[in-house]
Design a protein around this nucleic acid. Structure first.
Lengths: 165, 165
DNA sequence: TATCCCTGTTCGCTGGAGCGGACAAGATTG
DNA sequence: CAATCTTGTCCGCTCCAGCGAACAGGGATA
């Protein structure tokens, strides 16, 4: 008789896809898997950006589905950091709509930024500086780390981009 | 230097008006203050109607503001019982919209719905079917479960008083 | 090599979400 | 009147949300 353990999670739909949605946010905010920070560092960034507090351990537990019955306070911290309404974690429709927008933003970054870098290779240093300012301001709006350092070739190595490894 | 204790609750807006919103739901569902059940009985009705579990003590703590950092699981139980989307407790706009509709529903239930039911007893099956369609469409607008009947006990507060057990 | 930093993962703890059980006061019944 | 049922309120407990500290493994730098 048996069958699976059958966790009685299904009855309360609010917490079923929490881990999946959280991972979508993380992947959307850090598309490049190589540069994506770990849970500990991500937790530090969240605490610094939102003023709230969350631990790397708990982030991992949430992302891997070990814990899901989150509190309103922590939900608020996550929503604030990722720039999504708290309903994103509760409502499927809101989740889909936000997900689409996140995918769009990721796609834009993936293609447009690169072509921008290629075109920028012929500009004057003054123009490049202005563009850099704009990019940094945009990164602030998107909750990205303010360093805006480099990008393994995405934008810095604009010249001779074909050899980008 | 006195002044108030200044709890730093204000920074996390998600839990500020939780007690107020919960009380609005209770008052909307049981407009008659004399017949309104206490927290213990209300908790029993919630458990029976939703299959989830909540205690009278905790309901009182939530309604009086002693506790507010609720869990997603309990939030789901409350939202399911009161027939509102979970966002009602989080989003001010949703809260306002639902609140207006709850007031409307309360007013309707108070007088009109009863007379409607009485008058409907003499209508033809075809007319009743039309009315049923209208009611179901209205329920959709109010974010109520589409099933139609099944009422999960939410609307049980007003009826049955004439033939009380 | 060794040192350092970061990663994912686990263990064990603290604090508070959440509840059971009690209490006094008020209705209702006989 | 005494029972019996409510009600709101409180105390004290259990359990888990949430975290700190440590672990092993891997990539840098020297």
């Amino acid at each position: 008789m048996g069958g699976e353990p059958a966790h009685h999670d299904g009855v309360r739909p609010l917490l079923r896809k929490f881990d999946q949605r959280l991972n979508e946010l993380i992947h959307a905010l850090y598309p490049d898997e190589q540069q994506r920070p770990g849970y500990a560092r991500l937790a530090r960034e969240i605490s610094a950006a939102t003023g709230g507090s969350i631990s790397g351990t708990y982030l991992w537990e949430l992302a891997t589905g070990k814990k899901r019955n989150i509190t309103l306070e922590q939900l608020d911290v996550l929503a604030q950091f990722f720039g999504v309404p708290p309903e994103y974690f509760l409502n499927e429709e809101v989740s889909q709509r936000v997900k689409a927008q996140l995918a769009l933003a990721t796609a834009l970054r993936d293609a447009k930024v690169r072509s921008l870098a290629m075109r920028a290779s012929g500009l004057s240093p003054a123009s490049l500086d202005s563009l850099l300012t704009i990019v940094n301001e945009t990164r602030k709006v998107q909750n990205l780390p303010e360093g805006g350092h480099q990008g393994s070739g995405t934008d810095a190595g604009a010249d001779g981009e074909t050899t980008a490894t």
